[in-house]
Design a binder for these strands. Structure first.
Lengths: 162, 162
DNA sequence: GGAGTGATACTCGGATATCTGGTGTCCGAGTTTTCGCGG
DNA sequence: CCGCGAAAACTCGGACACCAGATATCCGAGTATCACTCC
């Protein structure tokens, strides 16, 4: 079980986009350059974020992407749902309805106990992700990120925003 | 993000194995027949359970598989780890160490805040699975499974064990 | 009748194909900017 | 000097290859059983 690597890219990009002035944008090319990742593939994921109303895209020169909502209104769960899909990891294939001791389909109105247990775990996971907003992640940058890197990032931003 | 379908098969098989008398076994062929799933592929997953000391395998005629521990000592997390692997779904690729504003590798002793957030969610998920034992699942069978199916299962077991 | 022995049938176990989904890349549609020209 | 217009350059967006891991299968190694033979 592996989550798409695009989730990690997306969260880092959102964090960077949150640090630029209002109404300014960064193109997919710039975002990819900053993180050292392939631009074309990153674009694919950014489009998914646009579809879920997490980012806004501006076409043309001086265009690019910017946050569509306040950082407090963007949770990690939103990003995971947009990139990796909303379907749970465990999917009940109803094998209890197969085999020699199965009954008719009408006898299985109650959910399978095994599927329910995994649904609980999934809910706990989603709950944890839902409680972590982009704002929370940004708030802990000053204490967790090396000040020198913060300086370099700010300088890079100043240069490309020119 | 999708978990291996073998996890579902495994839990169902473990539940069935828990219901047979001590020192009796069921072969992979029988287990597959009961659940209506391909036997050869099921064998692959059962072998993984043997490797993690959840099942014991007996070779030869009248051989098969049986639980290696008490049902209270087998959690859903044990099964997931055995079948799907112990690696977390989110894997930090350390993209913070890449790009134009990165520093030397020695400056990243603290874990990435984003990875930490996902690690928390993963811990919540694992905690939920760890708290659900095979014994718990079996305990709720009488109230959740149609009595007719319980009858048919018992009859099938009696036949193949005969 | 009982014990020994060989063949047998059934089991697990690992090595081998196939296939879906994620990964990565490319080219086209659209829009804003910008440069040049004319008034 | 100012307004207009066309070309250009840069952007996003979706369509097209590639690759890894899961899915599915098969054949070989090993062992308890069973039948047969011999004592």
């Amino acid at each position: 079980m592996k989550m798409s690597g695009g989730v990690e890219w997306s969260v880092h990009c959102l964090s960077l986009l949150a640090s630029l002035p209002p109404d300014r944008t960064l193109s997919a090319k710039r975002l990819a350059e900053f993180h050292g990742i392939p631009a074309a593939y990153l674009t694919k994921h950014l489009q998914a974020l646009v579809r879920d109303n997490i980012l806004e895209s501006i076409p043309g020169p001086r265009g690019g992407f910017r946050l569509s909502r306040a950082t407090e209104q963007i949770t990690l769960l939103d990003v995971v749902d947009a990139i990796d899909g909303k379907r749970p990891a465990f999917r009940c294939s109803e094998i209890r309805q197969r085999g020699p001791s199965a009954l008719g389909s009408k006898c299985y109105r109650r959910p399978c106990g095994i599927a329910a247990a995994f649904a609980n775990a999934d809910a706990a996971w989603r709950g944890s992700l839902m409680n972590c907003t982009l704002s929370d992640l940004i708030a802990e940058i000053p204490e967790k990120v090396d000040p020198r890197q913060q300086k370099k990032s700010a300088a890079w931003l100043k240069k490309v925003l020119g």
